[in-house]
Design a binder for these strands. Sequence first.
DNA 1: CTGAAGGCTAC
DNA 2: TCTCGTAGCCTTCAG
Length: 771
Amino acid sequence: MEHIKKKDKKMIIKPHQIKQHMWVFVNSAIVNPSFDSQTKETLTLKASKFGSTFNLSDKFLKDFLKTGIVDHCMKFAKAREELKIKKELNTGVKKNSKILGVPKLEDANNAGTRQSEKCTLILTEGDSAKSLAMAGIEIVGRDSYGCFPLKGKLLNVREAKASQLLNNEEIQNIIKILGIQVGKNYEEVKSLRYGSIMIMTDSDTDGSHIKGLIINFIHHFWPSLIKINGFLKEFITPIIKVSKGNRNFSFYTIPEYKNWYESINRNVSGWKIKYYKGLGTSTDKEAQEYFANIERNKIEFEYRNEEDDEAIELAFVKKKADARKQWLGDFDQKNALQDVNFTKIRYTDFVNKEFILYSLSDNQRSIPNLCDGLKPSERKILFACFKRKLKNEIKVAQLSGYIAEHSAYHHGEMSLQGTIVAMAQNFVGSNNINLLLPIGQFGTRNQGGKEHASARYIFTSLNKVTRHLFNEHDDELMKNIIEEGQKIEPHWFLPILPMILINGADGIGTGWSTSVPCYNPREIAENIRNKIAKGTFNEMKPWYKGYTGTIEKNNKGSYDNIGVFNWKEEDPDVLVITELPIKKWTKDYKVHLERLMGYEPAKDSKGKEKPKPKAKKNAEKTGEEDDEVSEKSKKEEIIVEEIREYHTSNKVHFEIRLNEAGIENYRKASNDKIITKFKLKTTIPTSNMVMFDKDLKIRKYPNVESILEEFYSLRLVYYTHRKNYLLTNMRRDLEVLSNKARFIQAVVDEKIKVRNVKKKDLIKVLVQQGN
DNA sequence: CTGAAGGCTAC
DNA sequence: TCTCGTAGCCTTCAG
């Protein structure tokens, strides 16, 4: 490329030269450059697959020479991609037509007519919310209100790949329903099928997330529409209702409720307090009340200036994770919405006062605490098991119900059951100490535990060691969370060893994620003793119970993790693999071995064939290779003739007979070469160990020692607390017992008469003697 | 690819 | 042939 840059601008670039670079750097099917044959000054990038052409100006050519080929190719590749998306998304989008093939849509009668501007499309979180909305729509009328249910979390369209965007039914449907053109600049809404969108989600943080994702969708494709105030609206519903006699109050935010709660001096006796989790809690009648008072329950989103753009981008641009860390760190609960007594909300305010609460709770539920190594749902499980003094085995499905009730767990029980199962697993690569017992099929290393049986078939109970690790005497020292007047699990437990290092953790939040490997509990204990004796911690490397491979520090600061392989003694053409790297599951590994045998896994497992005959024809002409296959899945060299498997429940054992090529290339090869070819190495990073500390502040820990250090000093303080607590109890017991003894002695010595003495008089005597 | 969440569809 | 329960799928989020 240098030679192109150096010389005179125009004439130097020859099509074939550029072409080579382009094939290298650009996803090859997208652009195919050629010069205008007459002037030699206009570069044409021909999109071979989609038949469109870009003619590049002189100015572009100048830039082109200045900045180099690659950037521009990439730019145009992107432009092509966008055009492709636009084209496909826009096919069949028309204003004046009834929508066909979207059975769940309840179209407004006036949608797509001359009166479409007055129509509102209600987007709901799920089908049940839709039926609630439909009950409400009876009040405001079907002529100008339509309704469409979303299936949970909407795609974040901002950096979505074309394929993902085009395969997303949700996105396609909304576009169709609105009759909106991707890439078109809308100054007004007359040409749309609906004049506005009203978002109706559960009033929990996940609901805020969904609102945000919808805003993001509109903002990304139609920034001009975002600027039309009132185009996007939300419908809010109360989260708490209280009633006493004929007095009724509805609260839309927690602070609002708390104000009321304080205003009656926390005396809620006689008041009926009802929490509305999710829209499904409301009855049809209530829905109709909300809609009858739609001015109270409707809030318009408002765009004022670039700050609003920036807020939305801060929330949804993928690479802004670091900015989000800052944003979350700076947040103060006082900044949250206190009430919703307004009819308009700026996008910045939505993001910074409401949406942020989702991001915070996302971290809270996904990232563990240093003190006990648990995430809230895991802690709830343990708390409930302790509370129930769980000794006998219990069906997982049953336990989850108990937990939900006693620890105020408000999410889906499937999710909770999944967490219980994960806590009880004990195959290699799962837990080093499983706090719960796996009784029944809890999954194996064949599929990383995904093959566990359904929660209604399997049983669990507390592992015996669990109560040793989480000492009963510490329970009273913990600060419990109070929710809805109910004492639930503590902010954190404090086990006698740092569980976070024993079982590790993985979690993905917002702005933050975490990844902590597992360590050897005995080594940790030894290390803590070492600290007591010598004042320092030794360096530790990750350790997995039952793992027979090696884990060694590499020069990048992470740990190489290599499986075990040998050439079979009786038959040196057979490679025997008896251990795979941590978290490589046997089933997945077999797929790799089969590729070495020449079997390619079926490309599209969903069986969704996407024939593109048109694109193929165009592609042939330009003489390009079949890019998608050649680029993405390079065929493996076939070196394996036969695979035999002798696994046991916790041990891997493959015997791999190589073919001629395999013997020639690998029989005498170095270990490194074999390890690479057979994918027997993975690395365990320790560079993203994030957790909440004792003050519930999220922090990243640079190394294991810093985690140990913090745990150690906290545990020391709490041993003192525990000692004091036990001493206080024992002193009290002692006092009681010695007084009892004194009393008995006094009776024996006949210093106190108990027979035929009135209770009142006896007490009098006792008080006198006591002093 | 990981895992705690939102949700529905296909079987 | 229809209904019911649920396994299996889609989505977010960071590295």
